[in-house]
């Protein structure tokens, strides 16, 4: 079949997948906040685009079996403002609130962000800390991949060519709170390093570090140490474990050394903040 150009607005997912399958130069576009910026810089030159806007079932948040489903085409703004992300799942809403600025939040979508997998993005560590999974659709069906396994390398995910992220699923949140601590040069910038953390009333802690490696950094061992106790020594130990797992880049926002140094400090700050807010 000849590759067609142009901007396509299919109304169903099977239609979208079919067009995408027609050639390598045909790309999906969600909010466009990252893709159009790259097109403007000449970094990507798609031959055709398939818009995910308006496809049934791809936008919006809903309660599903006690958990929360976030459609891929849900704007950052809607995730920031939703009442559905309670308890430990609120880490995802806190991350959404700190993405870029209000205008960008009107445009960007969680599906687009997750598929792009820029290591400086805010959603990936929040989704890992929240225990989220990513639902992927292909012409042959759909599957779910845990967020921790979905992000594979720099700008690389488990998506195969022609596949689409269609939803993010969060498990039933635990009573408690979540926090996304973003350290950046100015508000609205990408994070130099960030901490996504949840603290349940039960004491269980889950943490993921962003901006310090190809993928979010999480450690079951560090989580267990902090879940057992959140003393200064425990937090330092956990911070050391996470810092050792980091593989930060040197760039204009900071050196690798600086980022590694930040991790235990931001972790301590985040956990102390959570403890204070939860009152335990």
């Amino acid at each position: 079949m000849a590759t067609r150009g142009g901007y396509h607005r299919p109304s169903t997912l099977p239609e979208a997948l079919a067009i995408l399958g027609e050639g390598e130069g045909i790309k999906p576009i969600s909010g466009g906040a990252s893709l159009v910026a790259m097109m403007n810089a000449g970094i990507v030159e798609p031959t055709a685009l398939v818009s995910l806007e308006g496809i049934d079932g791809l936008a919006g948040l809903s309660s599903v079996d006690g958990g929360i489903r976030i459609g891929a085409f849900t704007r950052h703004r809607d995730i920031a403002e939703t009442a559905l992300l309670t308890g430990t799942s609120s880490v995802v809403a806190d991350a959404a609130r700190q993405i870029g600025n209000a205008v960008v939040r009107n445009m960007g979508t969680i599906g687009g962000a997750v598929a792009h997998a820029d290591p400086g993005l805010d959603f990936p560590p929040a989704l890992v800390a929240a225990g989220a999974s990513v639902e992927i659709a292909s012409p042959t069906g759909s599957r779910r991949v845990a967020a921790g396994a979905f992000f594979v390398d720099w700008y690389t995910t488990r998506l195969a060519p022609g596949e689409l992220v269609i939803a993010i699923h969060l498990p039933k949140p635990e009573p408690g709170i979540g926090l996304y601590l973003k350290h950046s040069r100015v508000a609205g910038d990408f994070a130099i390093a960030s901490v996504a953390a949840t603290l349940a009333r039960s004491g269980r802690v889950r943490v993921a570090i962003g901006g310090c490696g190809p993928t979010p950094i999480a450690s079951e061992e560090a989580d267990e140490i902090m879940s057992a106790r959140r003393s200064k020594e425990a937090l330092e130990r956990a911070g050391g474990i996470l810092s050792a797992l980091a593989d930060p880049i040197d760039d204009v926002r900071g050196s690798a050394e600086y980022r590694r140094m930040l991790i235990p400090r931001l972790l301590t700050q985040a956990m102390n903040d959570l403890s204070t807010r939860l009152g335990q």
Binding site: Y7, G32, A33, V36, N40, E53, V103
Partner: peptide
């Protein structure tokens, strides 16, 4: 009705 970046919106997507 919402503020958006026209530099990040594709003309063909605004139909």
């Amino acid at each position: 009705g919402r503020p958006m970046r026209s530099c990040l919106s594709l003309a063909l997507g605004c139909a």
